[in-house]
Computed example of a mutant assay.
Amino acid sequence: MSISNRVTDLLGVEHPIVQAPMGWIARAQLASAVSNAGGMGIIETGSGELDVIRGEIARMRELTDKPFGVNIALAYVRDPGIVRFVVDQGVRFVTTSAGDPSRYCAELKAAGLTVFHVVPTLKGALKALEAGVDGLIVEGAEGGGFKNQRDVASMVLLPLVCSRVNVPVIAAGGIVDGASMAAAFALGAEGVQMGTRMLSSVESPVHDNWKNAIVRAEETDTVFLNRGGKGPALRALRTARTQALEFDNPEDMRAHFANVRELYFGGDMEAAIPLAGQVCGRIDAIRPVREIIEDTIRGFHETVGGLASRYGCAR
């Protein structure tokens, strides 16, 4: 049931499945479960808590002997020594996001790291290639979290980017199972990234109220916020707070994340903005990470094999 391609070769993983670098969430408890299941666990740095992150990376090495990576969210870097910090942790794979990929790419590459940059547009993809990245994470607007204000869905963005680049591409946004992974591969991807599906897993550290809200959600239960305001847009679960913001452009969206810990770990769904992608409408249970990954790989092969058999492509 294994998959071998440029993504698995570059990352050194069994399965080309990457866990999204969610702030405060993508830490050792979740990331080690992903790595131990054969995927690529990612530790976040967007929270800015580098002393804590250092401990999380040390804990990763206690919990897994498998490859894992670190994300640098460029717009939220507070420490100018972030590259040195990452290199000193002995990490070999980095994803960069939310900013200019040329900011740290050369320095990371000079240190021997593999670098993938997250892009929401073709223009961003071409700029990342100029910066020298090894690969791209192409993120459609149906995914949760921070987004480009001019949103493009994966069905359009992914094949467009793949038609113009030669580096390996990981698809993000709308990925939840084997069928969606197979669809991403049909459009040119060689790997997938999962955010909302991992956010709602057993090993995710967030409060069960958030996980259960995802399980209960319908496909229409996300909102796209800050389309015309300052800073990035974002996709989140529909709550009283986010519904009130749906057609508003606050002067400072960051104010709505002031009490993020009360949401993430206290379970107060109105304390901040609960980020989530449209795939919440397809998630019907809180499941262990290993089960999610194994079922995704199995479903991928079943989907590809089923299409070949049904349409006579197996010759």
Rank of each mutant, 00 (worst) to 15 (best):
I82W: 00
H256K: 05
I3M: 14
G229N: 02
L160R: 13
A276T: 08
R54V: 01
R254T: 14
I25Y: 01
G277C: 06
H301R: 12
S47Y: 00
R315D: 15
R261E: 13
G306Q: 01
A179K: 15
S180Y: 10
G112H: 02
I283A: 06
C313I: 11
R315N: 13
G12P: 04
N249V: 08
M22S: 05
A73V: 15
I286G: 10
V215I: 15
E218D: 15
A244R: 13
A98K: 09
R261L: 14
V77N: 06
H117N: 11
H207P: 09
L307Y: 13
A308N: 13
L10F: 12
R241T: 15
G231K: 04
R103E: 14
D295L: 05
V169L: 03
A28Q: 00
G124T: 05
N212M: 14
V260F: 14
I286M: 02
F85I: 09
D221F: 01
D177H: 06
E56S: 03
E130I: 05
G81R: 11
S35M: 01
L187D: 04
Q149G: 12
D134E: 07
M194W: 07
A272K: 03
A131C: 10
G228N: 14
G48K: 11
E246H: 01
S180P: 13
G112P: 12
V86M: 05
R78A: 13
R235C: 10
P205L: 04
Q19L: 03
V161L: 08
R254K: 14
G143S: 08
A258S: 15
G228E: 14
F185Y: 15
I170G: 04
T296A: 14
K66M: 09
E139Y: 10
F257W: 11
N166V: 11
W24S: 12
A236T: 06
C162D: 06
A37T: 07
M181C: 03
A276V: 07
V7Q: 05
P288K: 00
P250E: 03
I43F: 11
L63I: 00
E130H: 07
L11E: 04
D51M: 02
I42W: 00
F146E: 13
H207L: 02
P232K: 01
R298C: 07
V118Y: 03
P120F: 00
L275Q: 15
T8S: 10
N226R: 01
